[in-house]
Simulated assay, not measured.
Amino acid sequence: MNFSRIFVMASNVFQEVIRDRILYIIGFYTLILAAAMRILPEIAASTEGKIFLDFGIALMGVIGLIVSVFVGTGLINKEIEKRTVLVLIAKPISRSEFITGKYFGLSAVLAVLVTTMTVIYLGFLQIAHIPYGIASILIAVLFLFLQISLINAVAISFGSFTSSLLAVILTFAVYLMGNISQDLLKFGRLSQNPGIENLTQALYLILPDLSRLDLKNQAVYGLQALPSAPTLIANAGYGLLYSSMLLAIAILIFSRREF
């Protein structure tokens, strides 16, 4: 792979997505937080701080998920539908560089979105005088970025060989199943049925365990509620490794496609 060509491809994706006014979502996030700040004290006067802390990170995750799914699944199909993929792969750029550049370009957009929303979120916490642990929140946000980057890889993988609509459905399915994969494993063990237990074990091994990258609930209660440092490092490595494997699969599939 030529990293300079990957960088150029990623830069083009970044500029294209930004031009699509994707950053308007930040305004939507700000409005929702402003409304929540006024509504939540009415819901639970004694616990609005904890609720708002959790809500802000959860909303950040929902927005990141929507962007990664809908933009990620369309990155490749849009090039195919416009026939621009023929021009791109005819140039001195390999298909692996094409896929990798698309992934890193959208990941850069997601990084800008998450960073900006985090700054806004912390600003609201300051305005509302809600106590929070900055270190625990930043760690939770970092793992949130790893999670939506993994979903980005899932979206691009499905988008490399299916239609945009089917890729969206499959990516959302992976996200939902990935969040309950540990529960599925426990269910299989409790069922005491060998067939169900084997099925749930297979699903657990195949699907990403997204709960390992979800720290928003722990972040509300500070650093002491987070997993140990070795566990955090292992979970971060898991997310990066899984994303890399998905990209390798997407490259393999896309390399075999004919246009």
Rank of each mutant, 00 (worst) to 15 (best):
122 L>K: 10
122 L>T: 04
124 F>C: 12
124 F>A: 14
126 Q>R: 12
140 A>Q: 03
144 L>Y: 04
145 F>K: 10
148 I>M: 06
149 S>C: 14
152 N>P: 10
152 N>E: 11
152 N>S: 13
155 A>M: 07
158 F>Q: 00
159 G>S: 04
159 G>Q: 00
164 S>I: 10
164 S>H: 10
164 S>R: 11
165 L>C: 14
165 L>N: 15
166 L>T: 11
167 A>W: 01
167 A>M: 07
168 V>T: 15
173 A>Y: 08
173 A>C: 07
177 M>R: 00
179 N>Y: 15
179 N>T: 10
180 I>Q: 11
185 L>V: 11
187 F>K: 08
187 F>W: 14
188 G>R: 02
189 R>Y: 14
190 L>I: 13
191 S>G: 05
192 Q>W: 03
195 G>Q: 11
195 G>H: 08
197 E>L: 11
197 E>K: 15
199 L>R: 14
199 L>C: 12
199 L>K: 14
204 Y>E: 09
206 I>L: 12
206 I>R: 00
207 L>Y: 02
210 L>E: 02
210 L>G: 04
212 R>G: 01
212 R>F: 04
214 D>K: 01
215 L>S: 04
219 A>N: 03
219 A>L: 06
221 Y>H: 10
224 Q>F: 10
225 A>V: 09
227 P>F: 07
228 S>L: 08
229 A>D: 06
231 T>M: 08
232 L>C: 08
239 G>R: 04
239 G>I: 02
242 Y>T: 03
243 S>R: 00
243 S>V: 08
243 S>Q: 07
243 S>F: 01
247 L>N: 05
251 I>L: 01
251 I>W: 06
251 I>D: 01
